[in-house]
């Protein structure tokens, strides 16, 4: 039948040799099979995540006790804890936030609200997207060469916080830009219309509207910083720290001390890495427990950010 298609005028007679019920059944079957594969592939990640959680919990849960949070690392696995690690993590993230957040948000505001379309802006934009793709360990090398040896800040909390601030800068810049871009232009026009300056418009109208989105970016960035290990190993974070940094509040005038900034430190992921790399399985339970704490922190931060973003998307129907 299809052969008749060769006859010049009548395709109509070449009625579909392939298009019978059997052929269509086959095509529908392939489609169903693919949907099953698609669902499975989509779930692989989630299944892996649940295995990971289960594995960590099985190994680490028995070690999670009050003592685990209030003890320093020790040569004996059963006595070792994460006190110096979590205190270190908190302080490093504090520095990261203080440096990275204002810098990133300011850069985002500039690029979105102020920057003119010129070569300088182009370079900055291309540069930000490139920075986001630089492997984290390269930031560690930068910090080692520039901060530790160049500026002499040492293997300190300050160096670590600074390094991670640079690392998360692109994340915060991109998030800031996106949420500012989502603010409708009509809001700006309304404000300009009553004679506000650019600074006032940005500060009083654009930023407040963009805040939830910016916040989401900041949370994602800080969660990333919290879990980062490689750059901190590179700058030489110590893996065995049996002391706490200098307290930031003192009993003498002026009651505030910044000496902790220059103290040696360890952080949760490095402590976990240290315990994983020890031969023998004694410390593996500790590693799992530290990993569990770390995972709980980063996942809840991420979940918070995601919930924030989706609620935002629903609320903001401009």
């Amino acid at each position: 039948m299809a052969g008749s298609a060769l006859r010049a005028d009548v395709i109509s007679e070449t009625r579909a040799p392939g298009l019978d019920a059997g052929q269509i059944r086959g095509r529908r079957l392939r489609e169903k099979l693919f949907i099953a594969c698609g669902l499975a592939s989509t779930l692989v990640g989630l299944i892996a995540l649940s295995f990971l959680l289960f594995d960590l919990a099985a190994d680490g849960l028995p070690r999670l006790s009050w003592d685990f949070f209030t003890s320093f690392p020790s040569r004996r696995a059963s006595a070792a804890g994460i006190l110096s690690a979590w205190v270190g993590s908190v302080l490093v993230i504090l520095v990261t936030a203080i440096i990275g957040v204002p810098l990133g948000v300011a850069a985002g505001i500039y690029l979105e609200e102020y920057a003119r379309r010129n070569w300088m802006t182009n370079i900055i934009e291309i540069n930000v997207s490139n920075l986001a793709a630089v492997p984290s360990i390269v930031y560690g090398l930068l910090a080692l060469g520039l901060f530790v040896y160049g500026l002499g800040t040492g293997r300190s909390i300050l160096t670590a916080g600074l390094t991670l601030a640079l690392l998360i800068l692109p994340i915060i810049i991109v998030a800031t830009r996106e949420s500012i871009r989502a603010v409708p232009y009509s809001i700006r026009e309304a404000a300009y219309g009553i004679g506000a300056t650019k600074g006032q418009v940005t500060r009083d109208h654009v930023l407040p509207a963009a805040i939830p989105g910016v916040l989401t970016g900041i949370i994602i960035g800080l969660s990333r910083a919290l879990g980062e290990t490689a750059p901190l190993i590179t700058i030489g974070a110590l893996t065995f720290i049996a002391f706490l940094p200098d307290p930031p509040i003192t009993s003498e005038f002026p009651f505030i001390s910044f000496r902790w900034l220059f103290d040696g430190f360890t952080v949760l992921p490095i402590q976990a890495f240290n315990w994983i790399s020890r031969p023998g399985s004694d410390f593996h339970a500790n590693a799992a427990a530290a990993g569990l704490v770390l995972l709980a922190l980063t996942l809840s931060l991420n979940a918070l950010a995601i919930v924030l973003r989706y609620r935002l998307r629903r609320r903001l129907q401009w």
Binding site: A2, G3, A5, L6, A8, I11, T14, A16, P17, Q23
Partner: peptide, 22 residues
């Protein structure tokens, strides 16, 4: 192609030509 209407390249060529002519 997706419906399997042509059994050979020549047939497919003919269908394409005919359709474009129409």
């Amino acid at each position: 192609r997706i419906h399997g209407l042509a059994r050979s390249k020549a047939e497919l060529d003919a269908i394409v030509e005919q359709s474009l002519k129409r």
